[in-house]
Write a protein that binds this DNA or RNA. Structure first.
Lengths: 165, 165
DNA sequence: TATTGTTATACTCTATAACTATA
DNA sequence: TATAGTTATAGAGTATAACAATA
């Protein structure tokens, strides 16, 4: 049964979680921009491609971007910068296959160590090994639970409520 | 000693944390916009004011917004919408005192239950009481550790690296 | 001199709707 | 018909720099 409110402890956990995530993201973004001229989204896209080498737009979008056109926009920037290329897919001629270039790989390799160091310094250092294990376990479950929820990245096309403020 | 890389387990915890935070934020934003026509930032500002009634711009900015002008912009919107008022401070005539209106309070009261329910459904429900306690503890420590790091909200005024992509 | 806040401006990013093409 | 991707467009948001006023 999904109850009503939240206990103070639960609310506190939520607030701490939200602020920690916001702070970490802000620090990481500053580092990525200063070090590689990339936004967080751009870095995530490149990091995925660094592992997979080639992905379709839809595969690339999943979990990173919440609209199709948003990915097209970012892919356009990354292609202009020579970090990726886009070409047709042989399996499915509707699809666009995105491939990381040597320059893209080089950029990821150059930035990644510093990125990891920021994460270590801000997130890992203040925690014990046990904490980190717990955090990974808890967050994996929460993530999987949310992934199973309705709205996903490039899936269905829905409306949007207007901003009233 | 702050070491070099991160173990797979540590990296996994970071990825799960980052994705869970992104997903939660996205769901919460959708709810806030649909239910109250507010962005997440706007809701955070109002929620703070609902508790404190009155805060200076600097106090209000802390932990929510990372630039002064960004807060001025948001405060302008909230004031236009009749949710807050801005006036001079008696203690410090440089300061602007932001006060939430009855309408602002009513809006927060109307939205908060649904907001809490989203957080419960997505973050709290898949966790045990023990998990939640752990999460709160871990995140509080991480948050405090990051708060103690150099860059803070409306503090010093620094440069920004150009976007190269 | 340092701090508080605003303004002007430029830019990044996101998302909806309409469209093309292939499955 | 459904899916993959692009384009056009409009709007929201952010941040830097320059500025005015008070401490």
């Amino acid at each position: 049964m999904t109850g009503q409110g939240l206990e103070p402890q639960q609310l506190g956990a939520y607030f701490a979680f939200a602020e920690a995530a916001s702070l970490l993201q802000h620090h990481v973004e500053q580092h990525l921009r200063a070090e590689g001229g990339l936004s967080y989204v751009q870095f995530q896209l490149l990091a995925r491609l660094a592992e997979a080498r080639s992905l379709t737009m839809t595969q690339l979008a999943d979990g990173v971007v919440y609209s199709r056109s948003g990915l097209t926009y970012q892919a356009g920037l990354l292609e202009q910068a020579g970090l990726i290329t886009r070409g047709p897919s042989v399996d499915d001629e509707r699809a666009t296959l995105v491939t990381i270039t040597e320059e893209g790989l080089a950029l990821v390799r150059r930035i990644l160590p510093g990125h990891v160091q920021v994460v270590r310094r801000l997130l890992v250092d203040p925690l014990s090994n046990d904490d980190v294990r717990h955090l990974g376990d808890i967050m994996s479950r929460v993530r999987d639970h949310m992934r199973a929820q309705p709205p996903r990245s490039a899936a269905p096309r829905r409306r949007r409520a207007p901003r009233s403020v």
